[in-house]
């Protein structure tokens, strides 16, 4: 479905994840984050960019890969994106959340 984020029309799925990662930019990231009650700081943005690069290069995202990233440790990852850090950071990064086969 269509949605207007930061004044731009984008395609999102039922849960609000961007369908086309190419429609992403930093303003859209800020708008998605705001909907989740997060104000993006430069620290958030550094993590979001790493999440985005990793996901777009086809590598799996898990707490283990974040732990090894060198970009953020897990305690801070949870502080930045409280509750479900992978679910939230992927959404803000304009990529799909980690999924199972079902």
């Amino acid at each position: 479905m269509e949605k207007v984020l930061a004044g731009q029309t984008v395609q999102v799925d039922q849960e609000g994840y961007l369908i086309d990662p190419n429609q992403w930019n930093e303003e859209i990231a800020r708008a998605i984050a705001a909907e989740e009650g997060i104000e993006l700081t430069p620290r958030h943005m550094a993590v979001v960019k790493w999440i985005r690069e990793t996901a777009l290069s086809g590598k799996p995202l898990s707490i283990r890969t974040v732990k090894k990233s060198g970009v953020v440790d897990i305690k801070e990852f949870y502080q930045l994106f409280p509750g479900g850090p992978l679910k939230l950071s992927t959404k803000i990064a304009g990529v799909s959340k980690p999924k199972s086969c079902l």
Partner: peptide
């Protein structure tokens, strides 16, 4: 689960 649900894909989560 470490994932966002038992069903993570749209059709499965709706149907199951």
């Amino acid at each position: 689960t470490p994932l966002s649900g038992a069903f993570t894909k749209p059709v499965s989560s709706e149907k199951l």
